[in-house]
Design a protein around this nucleic acid. Structure first.
Lengths: 356, 356
DNA sequence: TCGATTTTTGTAATCGATTACATCTTGTGT
DNA sequence: ACACAAGATGTAATCGATTACAAAAATCGA
């Protein structure tokens, strides 16, 4: 009844407009998509009919005929993670400018949900895919690539032919993190991991290990706490940390959220940051500017990452891609702030060694 | 060249499968969508052909024929705001379960971008719209409603016929916030606003004013700092606060982020929270659990909000909606934590009045 | 003014599925 | 074994646009 009032408005088709303007559907279509192909007078006539009828083309029919959906799928591990939200902003800025829409595939940290989005991509609902995830092995990426769908891997270097990577220098950054902590006098380290099965975590941890080796330390000089890219991983790591007898003094967290979780937890036990323990994060999310003390972290160029990734994907879609431009690694910058400092606490002096 | 290798894989159409199985396209279609309409033997034959050919239906063609896109548009003010990310999780959980996809419309706090998404909706790329925004006047909502498209307004009570609202009890909550602060002995208040032109802000401020009146205070007993739903609004409010001679002691912020920004800024000036000033936020984002001190705030049932909103939209799409179920207002709960407390600082004693 | 050339417009095929209707099979009861 | 109902399958129209090709109209030069 009242429900009926706002339902079932008659749809206006291109044929209706054509009839109204007294021309063929072909002409209407041309006016709308390629206006210089028609006479000015006809153009005006048609536009008037379009206006009067309130015609809006049915995009599904357009998609079917033109074989372009003007949509891109973005698969992200977790939307509540500000890192992905920020990247998505960059992607959005770039794509909407080119008239593309975004379909989001949110895995919500459950990897098995990836399959559904791979299906969505394979059913040609999208013209391309931006992969903000990367698991090992990368089956999803591979099957999409094999179906001829343009893909760009972001946030994870997928080493597959035909899949460009647009990533940050994770490995270099974590290596530098260890160097930085070592330079401050730290001799025992902690590593709070991200999602263990993700390629990005593998990269970061590899960089960490490289840094450990480069600074002259060994596998015994650090502990690794496994988890995922969330606050609670930091809390759990802190619990483990608090149980230790020889506590590390230099902590690296694979993301800012776990760094923040760690700090919050240890401070409730009267452990001071950075006097008792230094913490360095990764990502440079906005929250990290508002913690106390302000988090030392690596700032990723998230918005830029999104823009560049989207741009590469568009080039791929339009076949304007040269292989040599394929892989891009953006630099991250260390923000030295308040959660890191030289080793101070006397209890830790005994831990110093003669290395480096 | 090598580019060619992964491009242009031949597309398999339903006709190919039909030929392979030696049946008609109609039969293939029936096997895939309504299996009990075909004989078991034929079913197996067709499924084998599907498997062998790797056939995946072209969803665009399906959409055109069935007139259902199985996509929903979600228009959000800003994705980096965890509130919307969290709501989106709920929406996602509900929709993907029903086989619907999500197209996101991120306004990035720029209202003028709304028009593009309204166009997208009107070109029938989606079966329905979830509006996480609400501006005054609500032209976009109205034109979509008029076109017969199912819409649900969330996060903002849009008073238009045919647009169900799924919102939280904003007004009640802010009223309670004032009561709560007054009960703690506060006599002078500060209100840090959200985006001024948004309906949600209007609601929250209205509730605040109701609370002020209900507790026996007047317009002179509070200051309002305008801004939007971001950290920096809190910082700006703090700057203004610091300049005041008679500073308020009870602050309400229309979102957690501005509350956090405010606290961070005033604490750098050695103002203690809650001893010198109490702060209460709104939203209950995860980050608020990790600030120091832990933020007192109203927890919105964000995930539930998303689920319910999506559910209402699905009912609307399937015409199963009864008008009396239309508007839903979920309660918010006050989390009493560490940023609020009784008035303590002696300087403020002189401000006490005999009211209440 | 006429024919040749260019520009504009129309006709109809097409994209790839679904589905109403027609037709052909199969099964049942006698 | 036959008639008839029920069930399975096929034929072809359809969704609403775009576009190759054909046809018509406008433009131009002599």
């Amino acid at each position: 009844m009242s429900r009926k009032r706002w339902r079932a408005v008659k749809e206006i088709r291109i044929a209706d407009v054509a009839r109204l303007a007294g021309v063929s559907t072909a002409t209407v279509s041309r006016v709308l998509s390629d206006p210089d192909k028609v006479r000015q007078k006809t153009h005006d006539l048609v536009m008037e009919a379009v206006r009067r009828s309130g015609y809006i083309p049915n995009s599904t029919a357009q998609k079917l005929r033109t074989r372009r959906t003007m949509n891109v799928l973005v698969i992200a591990p977790r939307l509540t993670n500000p890192v992905f939200a920020e990247i998505l902003r960059g992607v959005d800025d770039e794509l909407t400018q080119s008239g593309y829409g975004i379909i989001i595939g949110n895995l919500d940290n459950r990897r098995e949900r990836e399959a559904r989005y791979v299906d969505l991509a394979l059913s040609r609902q999208v013209d391309g895919v931006l992969l903000l995830t990367g698991y090992i092995p990368e089956n999803g990426a591979r099957s999409m690539r094999d179906s001829g769908l343009p893909i760009v891997a972001m946030c994870a270097a997928i080493h597959e032919d035909g899949i460009p990577n647009v990533v940050v220098q994770d490995r270099e950054a974590t290596r530098k993190a260890v160097e930085y902590l070592a330079r401050l006098g730290h001799r025992k380290f902690g590593y709070i991991s991200g999602t263990v099965s993700s390629i990005i975590e593998v990269e970061r941890f590899a960089g960490f290990q490289e840094g450990i080796a480069a600074a002259g330390f060994s596998q015994e000089d650090f502990v690794r706490w496994e988890g995922s890219f969330v606050f609670s991983t930091g809390v759990a790591a802190a619990e483990a940390f608090l149980q230790m007898k020889d506590r590390p003094t230099g902590i690296f967290a694979a993301c800012d959220e776990s760094a923040i979780g760690f700090i919050k937890r240890v401070r409730t036990e009267r452990i001071r940051v950075p006097q008792d323990v230094s913490v360095i994060g990764f990502d440079g999310i906005e929250y990290a500017d508002y913690t106390e003390p302000t988090l030392t972290t690596f700032r990723q160029p998230l918005h830029e990452l999104g823009c560049v990734g989207a741009d590469v994907l568009l080039k791929l879609i339009h076949n304007q891609m040269k292989p040599e431009d394929w892989s891009i690694r953006l630099p991250v910058t260390l923000l030295e702030r308040e959660t890191t400092g030289p080793v101070l606490h006397k209890d830790y002096k005994s831990l110093r060694r003669s290395k480096v």
